[in-house]
């Protein structure tokens, strides 16, 4: 019952975003601002995670594929596909749900509690479109880019780790990378990242926008938002895999 109420409110928030901007220039400025906040803000953590996750998957795959019957190039193929298909989109987005989600929920929650949202409404500004839409658009623009960066860095991390710990040489690794490459996997990964980007931005925005009460509630809303987005990401991951693969 409560779920349906929440879901209905969520749909109303999304629907309420689509109105004519009061001033296009201000909306554009806000969008750019959010792109910087969301995209550049999360770049560091994404880079670190990607390099290490690539490195670890290379080492582990190398550890498991010890049979002399399997060619060494398989290691880089396996690493490439797991990074592109699963690690870069899903793992990175789970982390981003924490980083970006808590930021969005916190920002909007604070604005709600301190009546800044009311102040904007009073001026005659549609806060659903002015505050929420730029965040969602910025996420849709920057998160897929972050995922692509993560793919590249993840594979680079794997390559680096492989040669460092003598699993495969960089020559063989590079050769394997180009074997049996399926471009559809990248498309699939991007489809996932767009879906996740929407979840990561809209769910925390919903919880933040609707905070009632005081500072304590802001923290609570952030936590709920992050947990809900993580669960939805995993759920969507499964659904998309079942449909698209």
């Amino acid at each position: 019952m409560k779920f349906f109420k929440l879901f209905g409110e969520y749909i109303l928030l999304i629907k309420g975003m689509f109105t004519k901007p009061e001033n296009f220039k201000m909306y554009w400025k806000e969008l750019m601002h959010q792109c910087v906040e969301i995209g550049i803000g999360a770049l560091g953590i994404v880079a670190i995670i990607s390099v290490f996750m690539g490195a670890v998957s290379a080492v582990q795959t190398g550890y498991q594929l010890i049979s002399p019957l399997v060619p060494k190039t398989t290691i880089s193929q396996v690493v490439r596909d797991t990074v592109i298909l699963e690690f870069a989109p899903t793992l990175v987005c789970i982390v981003l749900a924490g980083v970006i989600g808590s930021k969005i929920a916190g920002e909007l929650g604070n604005m709600r509690v301190s009546e800044q949202i009311d102040a904007l409404e009073i001026m005659g500004i549609n806060t659903k479109s002015y505050l929420v839409m730029p965040k969602i658009l910025a996420a849709l623009i920057t998160i897929p880019l972050l995922v692509i960066i993560s793919m590249v860095l993840g594979i680079w991390g794997a390559r680096f780790a492989s040669s460092m710990s003598n699993i495969v040489s960089t020559d063989i690794f590079d050769k394997g990378l180009l074997e049996n490459f399926i471009p559809k996997n990248v498309t699939f990964a991007l489809a996932k990242s767009y879906t996740f980007a929407f979840i990561i931005s809209s769910i925390p925005a919903f919880y933040g926008y609707n905070v009632k009460g005081g500072a304590l509630e802001i923290g609570r809303a952030s936590t709920t938002a992050v947990i809900t987005s993580c669960i939805l990401i995993l759920f969507a991951d499964y659904i998309l895999a079942a449909i698209l693969l």
Binding site: E22, S114, Q116, D118, A119, E121, I122, M123, G124, N126
Partner: peptide, 17 residues
């Protein structure tokens, strides 16, 4: 929205951005 542009409001906690 039109009417609201003729309304100014001072909030209890000032509500500055």
């Amino acid at each position: 929205k039109q009417l609201r542009q003729q309304i100014g409001m001072l909030f209890q906690g000032s509500a500055l951005f």
